[in-house]
Nucleic acid binder design. Sequence first.
DNA 1: TACATTCGTACAATATAACATACAACTTGG
DNA 2: CCAAGTTGTATGTTATATTGTACGAATGTA
Lengths: 206, 206
Amino acid sequence: MVHTREGRFLWVNTFSDNRGEPMEPIHVQIGRNLQRLRKQRGLSLDKLAELTGVSKGMLAQIERGESSPTVTTLWKIAAGLNLTFSALIEPEPPTVTVVPRVATSPVVEEGGGYRVYPVFPFDRATRLEVYRVEMDPGVIHASEPHPAGVEEYLLIAEGELSVDVDGCTYTLRAGDALRMVADRPHTYRCGDRPTRVHMLLVYPPR
Amino acid sequence: MVHTREGRFLWVNTFSDNRGEPMEPIHVQIGRNLQRLRKQRGLSLDKLAELTGVSKGMLAQIERGESSPTVTTLWKIAAGLNLTFSALIEPEPPTVTVVPRVATSPVVEEGGGYRVYPVFPFDRATRLEVYRVEMDPGVIHASEPHPAGVEEYLLIAEGELSVDVDGCTYTLRAGDALRMVADRPHTYRCGDRPTRVHMLLVYPPR
DNA sequence: TACATTCGTACAATATAACATACAACTTGG
DNA sequence: CCAAGTTGTATGTTATATTGTACGAATGTA
């Protein structure tokens, strides 16, 4: 319950901040991204027109933010450059991010025996959120459901964890993994050794 | 250029199977997704037109795959429904899957000292792929670049791992984490203890 | 049941995307 | 240096995206 609420709390705040971003029309952003990507690859408009099957004039218009291309045109561009739509729509992300273990404080610490550390916050592009969960022997933690569509992955780093969900119990050890649709109550139970789990929450496109 | 060519090569040969894309034009896919999302929310075209500021007739045309909307129109739709572009482009997901450690065989086993076990295969909905990597002390592994847009997460379960990328070296220990854009060569170097890492590959929406 | 409202589709008018071609400025090769 | 090639921009034409309105069918209400 606390965990779920926390998770939701993080989601709401992180998500909306990221969403409140585009002050510029989307076609202008796309234009800028396209020009950057083209120049990074040292391509002329002519060359790009060849690669993508979109006219040189149109590409120039797009880059200058003077036209709002159709999705088909964008698709051609993305395919020709072997890109995703994201690369055309989103600004360039940082390349390497390290999160040392000691750099994080638990966001949840029930009686100290169940500790949740944020590793990577919700990322709008990947829709992925990563936590490190540490449980002391014998600790039981009940989670309320996440919103519909959220999927949870548990990657056991060490120790032993039992997961109760949908009336079933799954016992997992180091190296084991479990994924589940997380929109129902589930309970974690730590075995007789300290347990560390990488927990991934994957949010649906929404 | 060489790098770009390499990336393209990998994309074509390694990932095209996983990404087995439909042969349908993108605007038809978008139409289908839009209609599904609209109906899931119990909205009429009228209501959707209100929410998005796109005309009812146009929305109907899009849903029927009869028109290739501009990026501005798509943006309006996404914003009105509080969606990402991905949700408009990608189809929808599926309960509990457990992958015991012993259930998997390494897909990569270079001289035995570097072993990659698939945990969760590429999932079209989450665009996430999970591996467990085990390295013996002193082992070095050089990775070729992944396609553009792919992001790699390394969650250290145990041991010590050094990651060389972009001329920088990051040393990670149990509980540490790293995420990076994976479209460039990178090298893993195991410390003096056996190392286990959860490796996540997140593919951009496409 | 009759009437009102809602729904998705059709259609004509308007706006704009997308193209091919031309052109001035710049770069490259002999 | 000059000619040829390349580059991004401008322009007119065509295709199509987008709108507002009308309409028949379906649904809801008294």
